[in-house]
Amino acid sequence: MAARPGSVTFVAVLTYINGILNIIGGVILLITRDQMAGPNGGSVAGITTAAIISILLGIIVVIVARGLLRGSPGARTVVTVVMVIDILNGVLMLFTGQLASGIVQILWSLLIIVLLFTRRANGFFTGR
């Protein structure tokens, strides 16, 4: 059984942070949706949907992050899929004028994906 590489522990911590930030962001979006809707914003229904999706993805990521620490290949797959969705959301942010947020989200998600698939991480996840 391979020892857990530091990069996997680091990714698990980043994943926990990502999930918590998704939950917090979704809750803030839910609370402020009426102020965000309007002529230059989206519809209340669209904002509510985005907030709920953010909260649900955050909960999934927090739950699955524990599996990363145990070396679960399924957890790595779920986190990778969620990070790809986050990248796509970051690209969408770029096209909606949220340049800094989009770039940060894309780079954060790419970092997590890259660290999940290093040689040592591959050995850890396949050795389970």
Rank of each mutant, 00 (worst) to 15 (best):
residue 4 R to H: 11
residue 6 G to A: 14
residue 6 G to R: 13
residue 7 S to G: 08
residue 7 S to W: 07
residue 9 T to G: 09
residue 12 A to R: 09
residue 13 V to F: 12
residue 19 G to D: 03
residue 23 I to A: 08
residue 24 I to N: 02
residue 26 G to A: 05
residue 29 L to T: 13
residue 29 L to W: 03
residue 30 L to Y: 07
residue 30 L to F: 11
residue 32 T to A: 14
residue 32 T to R: 15
residue 34 D to A: 13
residue 35 Q to A: 15
residue 35 Q to Y: 13
residue 38 G to H: 05
residue 38 G to P: 09
residue 39 P to D: 10
residue 40 N to M: 15
residue 41 G to Q: 06
residue 42 G to S: 05
residue 44 V to N: 06
residue 44 V to C: 02
residue 44 V to H: 04
residue 47 I to F: 03
residue 48 T to G: 14
residue 49 T to F: 13
residue 49 T to C: 08
residue 50 A to C: 08
residue 52 I to D: 01
residue 57 L to V: 12
residue 57 L to M: 13
residue 61 V to G: 02
residue 61 V to M: 15
residue 61 V to T: 14
residue 64 V to H: 01
residue 65 A to K: 04
residue 69 L to V: 10
residue 71 G to H: 06
residue 72 S to L: 03
residue 73 P to H: 02
residue 73 P to Q: 10
residue 75 A to V: 02
residue 76 R to I: 00
residue 79 V to M: 00
residue 89 N to Q: 14
residue 89 N to H: 14
residue 91 V to F: 13
residue 94 L to A: 11
residue 94 L to Y: 07
residue 97 G to S: 09
residue 99 L to I: 15
residue 102 G to F: 03
residue 102 G to C: 10
residue 108 W to H: 00
residue 108 W to V: 04
residue 110 L to Q: 11
residue 113 I to F: 02
residue 114 V to Y: 07
residue 116 L to C: 02
residue 116 L to F: 06
residue 118 T to N: 04
residue 121 A to H: 04
residue 121 A to V: 08
residue 123 G to C: 00
residue 124 F to A: 06
